[in-house]
Nucleic acid binder design. Structure first.
Length: 660
DNA sequence: CAGTGAGCGAGCTTCCGCTTGACTT
């Protein structure tokens, strides 16, 4: 009997089908051994000697593994071929040798990039050893995160408030949100104008042209905003004041001359199949799902064997998957809709680990109608399927027409787009709006029906949504697919940020923590820090540097700074917000809003002399169904909204949904 | 699901990344 160990039970189930009766396949359920939670667990004076402990929650799993290992002739560790996977393999190996008394020679390491029969059987033939350089890179990452988190957090307890936290990832996420808020605060709206000419009358032949060049001056881009999947929207303008607009309009005639008409066909290529972060972003944009919700539904689909692994940063597809997807496109939509050449996608992010494939259906041609999926599961599955199929479909072909019209010294431009061939858009069902220009000939004279300007205002950059925050972090290589959703929960749970209309803004506590960290630890709480760490970890993984050296380089200046700040930094004052009311208890102080462990609450500005406290409530615009008094919006400890009665605790009515 | 803030100073809080399951609405 042989034993094979992987991380996930679903993966175990799949593999056991391929390996047959000679193999028992078990799952470790992720990491089984880690630094202790209750103390640092790293001796910085003894070359970063680490003190690992077995995870108590995994004792049941470990016993199972131990029992199976005693009986097994051969044991294969088949965790993911990436940094974390290698570390899990190493720790499970350590456990087998030291706790289950398995002889080292019996343990081997195998890895496969895809879970197919062929790949699994092939991996069984060539058994390697754990790559200790890669394990060391993981240890370096782990210990660095521990040092940052377990040294900065206590400093916050001392200088800001007890129970707070800081870390390489969460503190950068908080910083992004805080800095965006500052940007928005500083932003001053400015007007700009666009000048348009309308041609044609009735419903037929109506089109608009925009002034984009006058007296040799060209319109400039005034704004750029990322929409999604790398698509941007731009705004252009020439005119900042009404005066300038009036002057231009004054000199314009109704008569135009068509200077040129140019047309060209352009192709629009489909986007790559989903990674975790892109899946979360799309579900958020389309249906307003949280990252947590998306992952939960994806997990259901994964466990039912309908999709590949849902925590991945890879955009690549196995050769077999590409073949299958193409076959389905061909069968369902025909040859014309198939991309002439198969497409493979490479992940650009430097931090990508590429242990898995992109998220795709395991069988694109499968009919899932009979699978008993609920509405959410069906929706997400459909989205994943369409995106994967579309990436092997033909490009959409669009014809773009540009008409340049002269009016004295002014040049107007009309742009038309027309779908020639929808290609992959047919599969994804994305809408495309044609804007077809009428037949226009060069040299032709045209009379405008109306000529005028429209006033616009520049807008401040938007607050981060969960999707845009994760997207920004991912671009900088901060966080991993398995942690994107928890990052948001962490900083929300700490009351560092709150959500308003689906977007994040910092609380006064979040601002205080961020200001403190940026003031004293700018070099840790910044975007390039993780990128530099990744570069060093690559050196460790390729055997060019020892992980302890990496940590020494970090620890020397960091520990010096810690001491310095511990001694000199003042305790941070957290800002309060006045409500405008006087304190009903002492009649002297003002009622202010503070941010506590459980969110906002009202108290007296004279605290600790006056102990007045009251609930901070959001009016919800309904009456309590039980007592008829005013209903309020409240939040659970974890920030989830619920509805309650303003008379609590006298009236205990509460519900998740707003009563109608 | 319903508490809070500071400081007395018992003992405690805290990181990131890999997993799922046991709890709710």
């Amino acid at each position: 009997m042989n034993l094979l160990i992987v991380e996930s039970p679903t993966k175990a189930k799949t593999i056991s089908k391929y390996l047959g009766k000679d193999f028992e396949v078990l799952a470790s359920m992720g990491h089984i051994r880690d630094l202790p939670k209750s103390k640092l667990g790293v001796d910085v004076d003894k070359n970063f000697k680490v003190d690992y402990v077995l995870d108590k929650k995994k004792s049941k799993v470990l016993k199972q593994i131990k029992d199976a290992a005693m009986k097994a002739d051969k044991i294969v560790l088949a965790m993911d071929p990436d940094r974390e996977g290698e570390a899990i393999a190493y720790h499970v190996g350590w456990y087998l040798e030291n706790k289950a008394k398995v002889k080292k020679g019996k343990i081997g390491r195998a890895s496969f990039h895809e879970i197919t029969k062929g790949a699994v059987l092939k991996a069984m033939e060539s058994k390697g050893k754990t790559d200790m350089d890669l394990v060391d890179a993981q240890q370096g990452r782990r210990v660095l995160d521990r040092l940052v988190g377990y040294k900065l957090s206590p400093l916050l307890w001392k200088k800001v408030r007890r129970g707070l936290s800081a870390g390489r990832v969460q503190s950068v996420a908080l910083r992004l949100i805080c800095e965006r808020e500052v940007e928005i605060g500083k932003f001053k709206k400015s007007p700009y104008f666009r000048i348009w000419a309308a041609f044609g009358s009735g419903k037929k032949d109506v089109f608009l042209a925009e002034l984009w060049k006058v007296d040799g001056e060209r319109a400039k881009k005034t704004g750029k905003e990322e929409l999604f999947d790398g698509k941007y929207s731009y705004s252009y303008s020439l005119f900042e004041t009404q005066k300038k607009v009036d002057k231009v309009l004054e000199n314009l005639e109704e008569e135009f001359k068509v200077e040129s008409v140019t047309g060209r066909e352009s192709k629009r290529q489909p986007v790559p199949p989903f990674t975790t972060s892109k899946l979360q972003q799309n579900a958020a944009r389309k249906w307003g799902w949280s990252g947590k919700m998306t992952m939960r539904v994806a997990q259901d689909l994964y466990e039912r064997g309908l999709i590949t692994y849902h925590r991945t940063d890879s955009m690549s597809l196995s050769q077999k998957a590409i073949k299958d997807l193409r076959a389905v496109v061909l069968k369902k939509w025909g040859k014309e809709y198939l991309s002439p050449e198969s497409r493979q996608f490479k992940t650009k992010a430097k931090s990508a680990q590429e242990a898995h494939e992109a998220i795709r259906p395991t069988n694109a041609g499968r009919d899932v109608e009979s699978k008993g999926l609920n509405v959410r599961q069906a929706k997400l599955y459909d989205l994943i399927c369409k995106r994967a199929l579309a990436c092997q479909a033909a490009a959409a072909v669009v014809r773009k027409t540009k008409v340049s019209l002269l009016n004295g010294k002014a040049e107007f431009l009309a742009e038309g787009v027309q779908m020639i061939f929808p290609g992959f858009l047919t599969i994804t069902g994305e809408k495309f709006e044609d804007n077809i220009l009428p037949e226009i000939k060069e040299g032709e004279g045209m009379t405008s029906e109306s000529l005028g300007s429209v006033e616009h205002e520049t807008s401040a950059p938007p607050r981060y949504s969960e999707a845009s925050l994760i997207s920004s972090l991912e671009k900088q290589g901060i966080g991993r697919p398995s942690t994107y959703a928890p990052i948001v929960s962490t900083i929300m749970g700490r009351q560092y940020i709150e959500k308003e209309e689906g977007r994040f803004l910092p609380t006064s506590l979040g601002e205080a923590v961020n200001e403190f960290l940026v003031k004293y630890f700018e070099d840790v709480v910044n975007l390039p820090f993780t990128a530099q760490m990744e570069d060093s970890l690559d050196e460790v993984a390729s055997g060019k540097q020892k992980w302890q050296e990496l940590l020494t380089d970090f620890w020397k200046p960091f520990s010096k700074k810690l001491k310095e700040v511990e001694g000199k930094a003042e305790r941070v004052k957290i800002k309060t917000e006045k409500t405008g009311d006087k304190c009903p208890d002492c009649k002297k102080g003002d009622v202010v809003i503070r941010v506590g462990r459980f969110g906002k609450f009202k108290s007296c500005s004279e605290f600790p002399d006056c102990k007045y406290t009251a609930q901070f409530v959001e009016e919800a615009g309904f009456d309590c169904p039980d007592c008829g008094k005013e209903g309020v919006v409240r939040r659970t400890r974890r920030g989830k909204k619920f509805f309650g009665c303003s008379q609590y605790p006298t009236c205990k009515w509460a519900a998740w949904k707003r009563p109608s």
